[in-house]
Simulated assay, not measured.
Amino acid sequence: MKQALYFGVLSVLLAGCSQFKTSKQPTPVPTNLESHVQAQSNDVLADVPTQSSKIVGGDSRTMLLGKWYGIRKTNDGGRKEWLTERSADGTYRADFRSTAKNGDVRTQSEVGFWGISGGTYFRIFRGWVTLEGMKLADPTNADHYDAYEIQALTDDYFSYKHVARDRLYTVKKMPADFRLPVSVNSESKEPLTFSY
């Protein structure tokens, strides 16, 4: 029974990931990404919704479908960007791009499950996307399960606060064709750990 459930979950995740084709050639930086990053200042997205625009209910799940982009400055003068795509079947894919002050870039992609219960948004990290397929994460690692308090949600912006780390994140809804320039790493070393 457990083995059948495991293979069922794995097949759903792999099927969700199969729509994301990767190539070994670098992806050019889309102009919409550059202009969007250029428009950011002081780590704050413009027109961020206030607490008064908080929406929690059945529509919240539908509103979170699609692609959501976040960016924040790092302590060393670089930046971290992430693009999370949530699907109606409860799976997500997140692409991360970390740019150091000296211009070095590191990328990573992960997949898992997501959902909303009451005023809580949650995600369950299940693995990394690599050229060889999916590298499964350890399901017994408590750090792979995250809960966030929904601060605000509109058609364009989503603010949420990590319950354990007390860190606030704000992301912007992006068009379906928006992409981060992410190269899937085929190295055998342990992937980077990003928290968004």
Rank of each mutant, 00 (worst) to 15 (best):
Y160V: 09
T170L: 02
T120G: 00
S159I: 06
A88S: 14
R165D: 14
W68R: 04
Y92V: 00
A137D: 11
D59R: 13
A164S: 14
W68L: 04
R61L: 04
G103F: 03
F178M: 06
K135P: 00
W114A: 02
G133V: 10
E132C: 09
R167C: 01
K73N: 15
R165N: 14
A147K: 10
P175T: 14
D155N: 13
R93N: 05
H162D: 15
A147R: 07
K135T: 12
G78N: 11
K80M: 14
Y148E: 06
K173G: 05
L131P: 14
D59V: 12
T84H: 01
D146I: 10
E85V: 10
S186G: 15
G66C: 09
L83S: 06
W82H: 06
Y157R: 14
M174A: 03
K135V: 14
P139K: 03
P139V: 09
E149I: 03
D156I: 00
T154W: 03
D143K: 14
Y69R: 02
S117N: 13
R72M: 13
S60L: 09
G78R: 11
G57T: 09
K73T: 15
Y169Q: 08
E85M: 09
D166A: 14
F113D: 01
V163T: 14
P175R: 14
T154C: 05
W114G: 02
S87R: 15
A147D: 12
G103D: 06
L168Y: 01
S159E: 04
K135W: 13
D177L: 08
E187G: 13
D166F: 12
Q108D: 12
F96N: 03
W82K: 00
G127Q: 01
P181Q: 04
V105I: 15
E81K: 06
T170Y: 01
W128F: 11
R61Q: 13
D138V: 02
